[in-house]
């Protein structure tokens, strides 16, 4: 559906073969230092992750900078080691197509999101990280920072069910406090045709560094918000809903479970940004 295709400037393959464990190992100390000092990051709950391919399902925050995604990659690769089961994140083309950032992302284990990519990666034995809410959730208004906004998207449920893998929900707070977002930009994106041209579904008014006021979200310098992440116990859709699930019921259950955890995590904040 996308009409605008950018020429490829990337040297790193877009797939599990692009993940570079040695590069990750070398980069982890610098990333760890940055996230500990700047975001005072906390990640808990990895003990819930079973030793089999799983689909991590997260709430997406922070516009195009997605600091909690980087944090999760950092935490995962230190908990399970870079030689352990690889985790591959599906990312919006805005990230994977950005020069330099795209190559960095691929070496860290991100690939461009596509209809069959996640299934291929799971079949290859990798854990896969998806954000069903995509840019709509990453650009939700600041007032909804502690809300799950999956926009009714249920593809992740069908993916996990068909692949026979468990869903491991991951919730995070703080990422949406790294910039200010004033409104829900879905209607604007649709009116301007951005949803069809660039697959950008949300174009809200934002305030971020160094751009100031801007429609939409470009990669920005995030405010130093405290980021907390919680990995939740796995959900087995086949066990809970059988071979022919009621997708609406499954969607309600997964999003409700995540909302409860996200609200509880949000309640640990004393002050937004400061944590």
């Amino acid at each position: 559906m996308a009409l605008v295709r950018l020429p490829s400037l990337h040297r790193v393959p877009d797939g599990i073969e692009g993940r570079d464990p040695e590069f990750i190992r070398r980069t982890l100390p610098r990333l760890w230092l940055a996230f500990e000092l700047y975001f005072r990051a906390e990640v808990d709950g990895f003990e819930h992750v079973p030793d089999e391919p799983v689909l991590f399902v997260g709430n997406h925050s922070g516009g195009a900078s997605v600091p909690d995604t980087w944090l999760f990659l950092l935490a995962y690769n230190t908990y399970f080691t870079v030689e352990g089961r690889p985790m591959i994140g599906l990312a919006h083309r805005i990230i994977t197509d950005t020069p330099l950032v795209g190559d960095l992302a691929r070496r860290f284990g991100m690939v461009k999101a596509g209809p069959h990519r996640a299934r291929e990666l799971l079949d290859q034995g990798a854990n896969v990280l998806v954000y069903p809410g995509g840019d709509v959730e990453a650009l939700r208004p600041t007032r909804d920072r502690n809300r799950i906004v999956f926009d009714g998207r249920k593809g992740f449920l069908k993916l996990a069910h068909d692949a026979g893998v468990k869903i491991v929900p991951v919730v995070a707070t703080g990422g949406q406090e790294t910039m200010l977002i004033f409104n829900d930009g879905r209607r604007t994106a649709k009116a301007l045709g951005f949803d069809k041209l660039l697959r950008v579904k949300s174009l809200p008014l934002t305030l971020s560094l160094p751009w100031g006021f801007l429609p939409g979200g470009l990669p920005n310098i995030p405010l130093p918000a405290k980021i907390r992440m919680q990995v939740l116990p796995p959900i087995d859709l086949r066990e809970r809903y059988g071979d022919d699930p009621d997708w609406d019921a499954a969607y309600d259950y997964v999003t409700s479970t995540m909302q409860v955890a996200l609200s509880s995590l949000g309640a640990r904040s004393i002050l937004p940004v400061l944590g």
């Binding site: 502690n146 309600d252 259950y253 409700s256 479970t257 909302q259 409860v260 609200s263 509880s264 949000g266 309640a267 904040s269 004393i270 002050l271 937004p272």
Partner: peptide
């Protein structure tokens, strides 16, 4: 400060209650 903290705790409690009742 307390109003913000209390509000977030109330939301968390209400979400727990809703989930408990619905699921």
């Amino acid at each position: 400060l307390a109003r913000g903290i209390a509000g977030r705790h109330l939301v968390a409690g209400l979400e727990q209650l809703r989930h408990h009742l619905e699921f």
